[in-house]
Design a protein around this nucleic acid. Sequence first.
DNA 1: TGCCGAATCTAAGCATTGATTAGATGGAGC
DNA 2: GCTCCATCTAATCAATGCTTAGATTCGGCA
Lengths: 212, 212
Amino acid sequence: MTDEPATERPKPYHHGNLVDELLRVTVEIIEEKGVDQLSMREVARRAGVSPGAPFQHFASKSALLTAVAEQAMQRLVDAVSEAQDEVATEAPLRRLEAIGQGYLRWALANPTHFEVISSRKLIDFASSLTLQAQNDAIRHSMVELLTLAKANGNLPSERDIQELVLACRAYVYGLARMVVDDHFREWQITGEAETVVLRSLNGFITSLSRTG
Amino acid sequence: MTDEPATERPKPYHHGNLVDELLRVTVEIIEEKGVDQLSMREVARRAGVSPGAPFQHFASKSALLTAVAEQAMQRLVDAVSEAQDEVATEAPLRRLEAIGQGYLRWALANPTHFEVISSRKLIDFASSLTLQAQNDAIRHSMVELLTLAKANGNLPSERDIQELVLACRAYVYGLARMVVDDHFREWQITGEAETVVLRSLNGFITSLSRTG
DNA sequence: TGCCGAATCTAAGCATTGATTAGATGGAGC
DNA sequence: GCTCCATCTAATCAATGCTTAGATTCGGCA
């Protein structure tokens, strides 16, 4: 029934699967020209649909971006989780480092997606339980590993877990953000950023474990 | 000559000092509703001038924001510099911490200004020698202090200065950004953020000085 | 003092955007 | 085969960044 001449498909009135197509096209544009260059109307245009159509499925631009953020965040969570699994048998602090590595590699490989996720003025983080759960998931594994490390006596005893979690988050987030915010023009030769950033992370983790 | 009836000043055709007024008004709006809510036209409106007038002095919106950023950055540099001067007689690492404290306090007290400064997609950082010089100034004092600390034997010898500078920048920037990006809804009771963030900074500086 | 050129501003307009609404269209279920 | 409802179009609104032509005013020079 859906006979479509390969050229000039007759453009059915009902798209059939607009939501997915809108998300796909949004990601396409974001990767092409950055988040701030994204417009609802171009999304509609590329999806081959009228300017008002997307608003049937997403109440606002930030609702669209929130949906994109949820997908992206899931990929981040997966990347982090995989990175940790690869060293599942090693010491807690090594696994903690792997989390950071996964996070940083993903952020450097997907800078615009990382921007969508982290800048909570573009998206509606507060109203997305999904995003909050995904965010907590990462934090939770950090707590676990740090607790383990402390129990093993690999951490200075005077620092509590919450404090250390914050430290790790801040450090990794800081590195990622500095790259994304373009604070590294200094040594921004392709690929070098990752090397520098990962070495920096390693130094940080090492300094954590120095027993005072 | 400039007789102005206190009520209904006759609104001279030539503003006299539009540039300063535009900057003032821009800051006003930014502090009131955030950077992303800033529009050239409202700037013009508040300055009591036609929508096209601002473009005589600032070629684009990002040029306006760049000018604002230069002013803000100068205040950041001053704040950091003062914070350091207050502990000028103390140990290098203590002075380094003071830089971080000055930076963080300023960022927390001026979140939207910090956003303008750091997000280099809003401003035209590359074309502002002023901004680059201001940025380098802070980095330079960090290099100095770390060099001093290393000479004093207060740092693990296997880590080089550039690596440590990056670590400090990332940590402080990460903390500041997380607050500004609203990643701290968890304990965002007013004032508490500063306490937590400064304690975290202290922990970081301390961990730097642990000799391995 | 009077005039001219340059700096400054207005007015009008262009293309674009996010968002809303009334109504056309077509698929799903009875 | 018919009806209902989700889906989409078309038209519209107010707002935005930015440009341009022309009006206004100021400073300097005669």
